[in-house]
């Protein structure tokens, strides 16, 4: 059984208007998505801004009110607050936030910040608690003198590590990493990502890794899902997505990865323009009449794409021929 199963999850935000301030319309931020996260793996969730990735992540950790659908954790539906409380759900599922500064309370010392989940879930003695915080600081590569400082005294990379230390504090099973490195510069990104991987190995944690940076996701993930306009457009292993993309949206995302190969600049530009050209001509083929992505259909045991079945088969066929 998977660690977390998300079934037909929907999060709609109401739009209120008129004299009585009634709900007149809805924004479907997440519109019926399903995927499973296995224990110990890193699951990537990729998409452009506003595609609903963060909303999905927040729903999984229990911060967002779910409109309909289920999120099963060990067979319990944790979209209901009562179930979350009964399971001590957040003992097992934690979150790393994108903005490292605003996710740490500026008025609290590092010790209190990292110890917060411990105080709520584990009730250790003062000595044990301090020891655990020092161990956590050591694990994320910070010195003990950080203990009584405030968040603004640290650099962005250090702050994000404090955020990771807090998330790891209760030894959770799953960590939602909501764009954990997008606010950091490239050298620090690599640092943070590598020790996130190290922690994963040491503690056997699963990540739901939310990002818009396909390069980073490739470094981190085994399976990933591509999200667009609140729907999943493609699910597969790293190999499926990077080497055999079927949906036009995935192709566009991949084409947008910057390349450092300057001598091939003209060729890269041409291939990007070609993808854009296909998108402009064949847009209707990939989305239904309302502009929504189609339901997912499987083209291989690991690979699913949101297309009408006949087109999906046809594209998959073309793709495998091109491979040979």
């Amino acid at each position: 059984m998977s660690l977390v199963e998300i079934k037909n999850l929907k999060v709609h935000y109401p739009i209120r208007s008129g004299f009585w301030n009634r709900i007149t319309d809805e924004v479907p931020a997440v519109d019926g998505i399903s995927f499973n996260i296995e224990a110990g793996e890193t699951y990537g969730l990729v998409g452009e801004s506003g595609s609903g990735k963060s909303t999905t992540g927040k729903s999984v950790v229990g911060l967002e009110k779910v409109t309909s659908g289920q999120i099963l954790y060990n067979g319990h539906d944790i979209t209901r607050r009562n179930n979350r409380r009964k399971l001590d759900y957040n003992h097992d599922v934690q979150m790393i936030f994108q903005d490292s500064l605003s996710s740490l309370n500026p008025r609290k010392r590092i010790e209190d910040i990292i110890a917060e989940p411990l105080r709520n879930f584990e009730h250790l003695s003062k000595q044990d608690e301090k020891l655990r915080v020092l161990q956590l600081l050591d694990i994320v590569g910070l010195d003990a003198d950080a203990l009584y400082k405030y968040p603004h005294q640290f650099s962005g990379g250090q702050r994000q590590r404090i955020g990771v230390a807090r998330a790891v504090a209760t030894n959770p099973k799953l960590i939602i990493a909501d764009e954990p490195v997008s606010a950091l510069d490239l050298s620090v990104q690599a640092q943070v990502l590598n020790f996130m991987k190290k922690i994963q190995r040491d503690f056997g944690i699963s990540y739901l890794f939310i990002s818009h940076d396909l390069g980073v996701v490739r470094h981190m993930c085994t399976n990933l899902a591509i999200m667009n306009r609140g729907r999943l457009v493609e699910i597969g292993t790293c190999d499926d997505i990077y080497n055999h993309p079927l949906h036009i949206y995935t192709k566009r995302l991949l084409a947008a990865i910057p390349r450092t190969d300057v001598s091939q600049r003209a060729a890269h530009r041409a291939s990007r323009l070609a993808v854009e050209e296909i998108y402009r001509e064949q847009q209707d083929k990939y989305y239904d009449d309302n502009g929504r992505a189609y339901p997912l259909v499987a083209v291989s045991p690991t690979h699913q794409v949101a297309l009408p079945p006949d087109i999906a088969q046809q594209l998959a066929h073309q793709e495998s021929e091109a491979d040979v």
């Binding site: 010392r109 010790e111 000595q127 301090k130 020891l131 655990r132 020092l134 161990q135 956590l136 050591d138 694990i139 010195d143 003990a144 003198d145 950080a146 203990l147 009584y148 400082k149 405030y150 005294q153 030894n171 040491d202 503690f203």
Partner: peptide, 24 residues
């Protein structure tokens, strides 16, 4: 946690003191 770090209960007093010295 003990397995993955070198910090143990013996270091607690020393490390807290270090932190105290650097405290805001």
């Amino acid at each position: 946690f003990n397995r993955n770090t070198n910090v143990s209960a013996n270091d607690l007093a020393r490390l807290s003191q270090e932190a105290e010295a650097e405290a805001t």
